[in-house]
Write a protein that binds this DNA or RNA. Structure first.
Lengths: 350, 350
DNA sequence: GTTAGCACTCAACAGCCGAGAGTGCTAAAG
DNA sequence: CTTTAGCACTCTCGGCTGTTGAGTGCTAAC
């Protein structure tokens, strides 16, 4: 994907200039406008020659003969890998992120929803955040609370401060006085491990124990067997209307395509997981639409970062926008937000 | 609002015809096209005269001199009140609603979210459903489940099958062995009444009881005092992309306006509440955008209905669309869905 | 290798024209 | 008095044209 060719210095300067002006103006950029704006000590004609070279190499393209150049995905990729300045977010942005996040005092779920709004607010593009899913959450405490004879709520607190409730419809009533013991048993088996591990521990007990403990294990298996299947991770996507501001989506058919795409937000996050979390360690990344597997996302790109609790990656957050995004501004914001969220959740959990 | 003037029969026929063709074609309708399509035994010139009359009376309007007529809000209102055929949904629609709803077996929250999708699916317009809010939910069972020393989860089952969990951050730890008794106490006070009533009952105990019961009441007050404020009712709005299909929203600026509007879905539902639930009994209703208080919703209208559990109204559901909506098709669907959802939730609660 | 000059291309915009749909008015017919 | 036919008029929409301006590619000179 990232081939190691390096462009000459002048080519880099000009590619950088093209991308920068294209991103800010949303219009194909010509040789003259570049020398005007950046006045590198050469003439428009020279710039033209270099641009032609860059086009041959696939970094730029023309929409039609004789109009300005526009960066290709390859051009963006090169920019992202070699040219983009590495900088922290502006003090104002940092301030805004910090204060907004520090005002969130409720449970993990709420914090995560608000983070997506925060991202949208600051980046002026839709923000997306995936809530940690159950699969590898470590149980800190579990409690069965009987609601009626035939229904029981299972409250699970996990290691990153999240608490969720599952409703279990029983096939036969749970003896009331048994609940206390069952809770104790579940916590013995479940504390500090994942759901899957708890299941295994209980099965093991079922085989090796006797009498009361065995009876408890049987009940536990019965109850847990009736548990609804794991909820797939929740994804919050906020601020989608911001896309209307982008001139590329002023065409209604394009806008519709994008919105249709974004409706499948679980799908989108799945693609991001594939890109971010397969690497070790999982890391920050900008994903261009055309680099994603199933076609159809050519128009968009995502600046995404994993976030973690206590050193372990638990989810992804990011900003969605058109390919023509001010990456140099968005990237620091996303990175900083991921860091702040990680810290906040870790504190909440600890 | 509904003035009692009745139009002549011929005027009604023509108004009906204009609305019907305008809704289906989305184009201003002229006299000739009406006689062609409906061939009432009169000439185009006569129709023209009648249309001119209807325009004078404010039921129709012209976009510009010499193009067809378009219904005004007043025209729609008259249609809705006097002209629209009263009919059940088509067998296929009924079928679809029944099967989709019967497949939902999870908790009330999930059912309600899916109902908004269902409405969108069948009506081809965005569906909106307001989840029952806490304010007048009757507590069926309440249970405190300690998570850590400083946090406790309160699980509340209400009378319509909903279960919600609230996290309470304690100021000082809750003695573990006290929890059992506290739970019992809370249920004694809370079962069968609303939150507010429970609060009052406990305050009363605090004044009249002594010793242990008084101590329990004190603890209860302390814990409940730390409870987060009532969550405002959740509103699910699904299928908004369907709006892109409507020609009136092919203009991006209009589309953006609508989407901005719909982002404040809690606000929208508030307006609907004001319209539907102030009447006694609360009833089915079509609300045209211009009839709503704060300006700015002229472009849309909502077909909405309350739904209930065990005879009591607990929420609102509906379909949002452009003014130019096929009310005769949507209205039965919304009504039927409200009925089915009411039955389902009542069954679930019972 | 770089620059100036020049001919050429293309999108975007404004203006114009004709077709088509629809109206309002008037006068004649019922 | 109501209905109808006829006619002149209005307005939108689509297609066509010419112009403008930004931008390119090429070539020859520096």
């Amino acid at each position: 994907m990232t081939d190691n060719v390096r462009l000459t210095e002048r080519e880099e300067t000009i590619l950088h200039a093209v991308i920068h002006t294209y991103v800010t103006t949303a219009e194909a950029v010509g040789s003259r406008s570049i020398v005007k704006r950046y006045g590198l000590g050469v003439s428009a004609a020279t710039v033209r020659n270099v641009m032609a070279d860059l086009e041959d190499q696939g970094y730029l393209e023309q929409l039609h003969t004789s109009s300005g150049r526009v960066p290709t995905d390859r051009g963006y990729r090169y920019y992202l890998n070699h040219l983009m300045p590495v900088q922290p977010p502006s003090p104002e942005e940092r301030d805004q992120i910090d204060t907004e996040l520090s005002q969130m005092v409720r449970d993990a779920q709420e914090i995560i929803r608000h983070t997506s709004q925060l991202l949208a607010l600051i980046s002026h593009h839709p923000g997306i955040v995936e809530a940690p899913d159950d699969t590898n959450a470590v149980i800190r405490h579990v409690e069965l609370a009987p609601i009626t004879d035939s229904r029981v709520a299972m409250v699970v607190a996990d290691n990153y401060g999240g608490v969720r409730t599952m409703l279990i419809a029983l096939d036969e009533p749970l003896p009331r006085d048994n609940v206390e013991k069952l809770n104790q048993f579940l916590n013995e088996q479940g504390e500090g491990v994942t759901f899957e591990q708890m299941g295994r521990a209980i099965s093991h007990r079922l085989e090796t124990s006797q009498d009361e403990e065995r009876r408890l294990a049987e009940t536990a298996v019965r109850v847990l067997g009736l548990m609804p299947p794991h909820r797939s991770a929740q994804v919050f996507l906020e601020g989608t209307i911001q896309l209307f501001e982008q001139p590329e989506f002023h065409d209604v058919s394009k806008a519709r395509a994008i919105f249709t795409l974004l409706e499948r937000r679980d799908h989108l996050i799945e693609l991001l997981r594939a890109r971010l979390l397969t690497e070790e360690p999982p890391r920050f990344s900008v994903v261009l639409g055309s680099e994603m597997e199933p076609e159809g996302m050519e128009e968009i790109s995502v600046v995404a970062s994993p976030y973690m609790v206590g050193g372990q990656t638990v989810g992804i957050l990011g900003v969605v926008g058109p390919r023509r995004m001010p990456y140099w501004r968005i990237t620091p914001v996303v990175g900083y937000t991921a860091g702040s969220l990680s810290r906040l959740l870790t504190r909440l959990a600890g």
